[in-house]
Design a protein around this nucleic acid. Structure first.
Length: 242
DNA sequence: AATCGTCCCAACCGCACTCTC
DNA sequence: AGAGAGTGCGGTTGGGACGAT
């Protein structure tokens, strides 16, 4: 008979179900089960595999951690942009947002949002803000470096043209959304089309300014916060940072 | 080196919805 | 139609990692 101690300090049993962090053995059992029977019928997992985990726990572990199509690693600035846009549109519908980000889970997006953009933690101080700013600047620099390297290597491909079209569509949506959310003088999205170098202005823009770089330049959220702080007000119920 | 505060993420909980009988 | 089981979703919590002081 297993004991909670055997699985570590935080493991415990509740109503016969084991709780706490999953062990590699448990992961293996669950993966084997899904490979054999497919996803679903989570409540039968414990009966068929001997796992002392509830169906809910099994499903969560599979969806958030064991699924083979999960994308590991940090949220990219581009993904961050999408998250912000979709959250502005749909609110806290994390699973809906996650569907637009292949390989990312609702839990991951939810955590990311709470860490980076959720407002009003009383413990949040200026140092948080400074660190967030530094982190974002780093994001931008990395993104720009990646973009420059990418452009050095390749001429523009049809796929990139598709991306440009997609970017233009998103720019249009964000522009409309931002006009509502960020009244002047906070609205840094007003000329997003020009910054993104897409749509009607794309032929005039310089070839060095691709959409990726523009997205990076776009999301200097602290500017919004600074303006908001200076004005001592909230902007449209849309909250950034501490 | 020690302490403290924050970040990050895995996991749990409760509720609501859907499905099956 | 209605009850119970199964599933999905959003909110919340706990703790290790890491950087700042």
């Amino acid at each position: 008979m297993e004991s909670a101690v055997q699985f570590g300090w935080s493991s415990r049993f509740d109503d016969g179900w084991r709780k706490g962090p999953w062990t590699p053995q448990e992961d293996k059992l669950l993966v084997e089960h899904v490979n054999l029977h497919g996803e679903g019928r989570w409540n039968s997992v414990s009966r068929l595999t001997g796992l002392k985990r509830s169906g809910k726990s099994c499903r969560l572990r599979w969806v958030n951690y064991l699924r083979p199509d999960l994308k590991r690693g940090k949220i990219t600035p581009h993904e961050e942009t999408i998250i912000l846009e979709l959250h502005a549109r749909w609110g806290n519908r994390w699973s809906t947002i996650a569907r637009s980000l292949p390989g990312r889970t609702d839990n991951e997006i939810k955590n990311y949002w709470r860490t980076h953009f959720k407002k009003g933690k009383p413990t949040c101080r200026n140092s948080d803000k400074t660190r967030a700013r530094s982190r974002f600047i780093r994001h931008q620099q990395e993104q720009q470096n990646q973009h420059l390297q990418h452009q050095d290597l390749q001429p523009q491909q049809p796929q990139q043209q598709l991306q440009l079209q997609h970017t233009a569509a998103m720019a249009q949506e964000i522009q409309e959304m931002a006009a509502y959310m960020f009244p002047a003088p906070y609205n840094m999205f007003q000329n997003i089309g020009e910054h993104l170098n897409v749509g009607s202005t794309s032929e005039e823009g310089s070839p060095e300014d691709g959409p990726e770089m523009a997205w990076g330049n776009l999301w200097n959220l602290d500017d919004v916060n600074d303006a908001r702080d200076a004005a001592g007000e909230d902007i449209g119920g849309f909250s950034f940072g501490g």
